[in-house]
């Protein structure tokens, strides 16, 4: 009996000593750092046609300080447009995806810059903490804090919420949805999502084929499928039907269906995969699609 009790105690101790808190949340992020931003010089071979180029003097790099519970980081951003007219222009805050830095997304930024005519809208793109030249390490809360810092900068330049559009691609949907759901300084007028994250749980279910929650192996909490219910701003959603990273059916579609605002529109691209949907749709078609949404949802 004594041996049995000792064995039992040893077993229990062994179990709880093995129990640790490994957390894979950090693996969600794939930043790269660099010394300087190069924009069109970053990867010239993959630049889009020169007719979409940014006008001389309209790439304005700047930094802001972003405070995440005392972790103050210098965050890099670039305003593509005329700085002197932010107080009267409409601005698209472009929240990029989960790779590298904003140079990698610069060609996409130029597509937005050409919506409804070249330089019709100012575009603000920035690197979340840990990406590009921005300091610190990425986290969900950090992305939101950095977005708040960028919106604050726009506000200081004279922007008002009725002229702010947020666009989130993939990981950037965390920033874009937060900007609409939370009070980050300005209430955006429109929300645009490209291949957004539905929820971390949906990612876990997609990966496992089982109804399990992501909290079993990570402490991420993103759930846009639920968050979108609280968002009334007009919604634009574009997603590749061949997306093999964030599947259209399990991520974007539930978000779109759950949106209860007065206006929403979708653009589904049959051959689009996670990283190429605008280009599979066609550059002109994509520009037309986003242009129409902005005009129709006025």
């Amino acid at each position: 009996m004594k041996v049995t009790k000792i064995t039992l105690c040893l077993l229990v101790i062994s179990v709880f000593s093995l129990t640790s808190c490994l957390d894979l949340s950090g693996l969600l992020y794939n930043p790269s750092t660099l010394e300087e931003y190069k924009y069109d010089e970053f990867d010239p071979e993959n630049n889009i046609d020169s007719k979409y180029d940014v006008l001389d003097g309209e790439i304005n790099e700047f930094t802001v300080e972003s405070d995440l519970d005392g972790d103050i980081a210098t965050i890099y951003g670039a305003y593509i447009g005329d700085l002197s007219t932010i107080d009267e222009d409409t601005v698209i805050l472009y929240c990029h995806g989960n790779a590298a830095h904003m140079d990698l997304y610069f060609q996409r930024t130029k597509l937005l810059y050409n919506a409804n005519g070249k330089s019709r809208y100012g575009i603000l793109t920035f690197d979340y903490r840990g990406f590009g030249r921005s300091e610190s390490v990425p986290t969900e809360d950090g992305i939101v804090a950095d977005t708040r810092a960028m919106i604050q900068w726009l506000k200081e330049q004279g922007l008002t919420g009725d002229r702010l559009i947020v666009y989130g691609f993939s990981l950037g949907s965390i920033a874009a949805v937060a900007a609409c759901k939370q009070d980050l300084g300005l209430r955006p007028d429109k929300l645009m999502l490209e291949a957004p994250i539905g929820s971390i749980d949906a990612m876990a279910e997609d990966g496992s084929g089982l109804s399990i929650q992501a909290s079993l192996f990570a402490s991420l909490k993103t759930n846009h499928i639920e968050d979108i219910k609280e968002i009334e701003q007009p919604l634009y959603w574009i997603h590749g039907e061949s997306d093999d990273f964030l599947a259209m059916l399990t991520h974007g579609r539930p978000i779109f269906l759950n949106h209860e605002g007065a206006f929403k529109t979708s653009e589904l691209v049959p051959t689009g995969n996670h990283g190429d949907t605008p280009f599979k749709l066609g550059i002109e078609e994509y520009i037309t699609s986003i242009s129409n949404f902005i005009l129709q949802s006025e």
Partner: peptide, 11 residues
């Protein structure tokens, strides 16, 4: 990033 999700099939 898919490492994170791959581990989802632990179960």
């Amino acid at each position: 990033a898919i490492v994170l999700l791959a581990l989802g099939i632990f179960f």
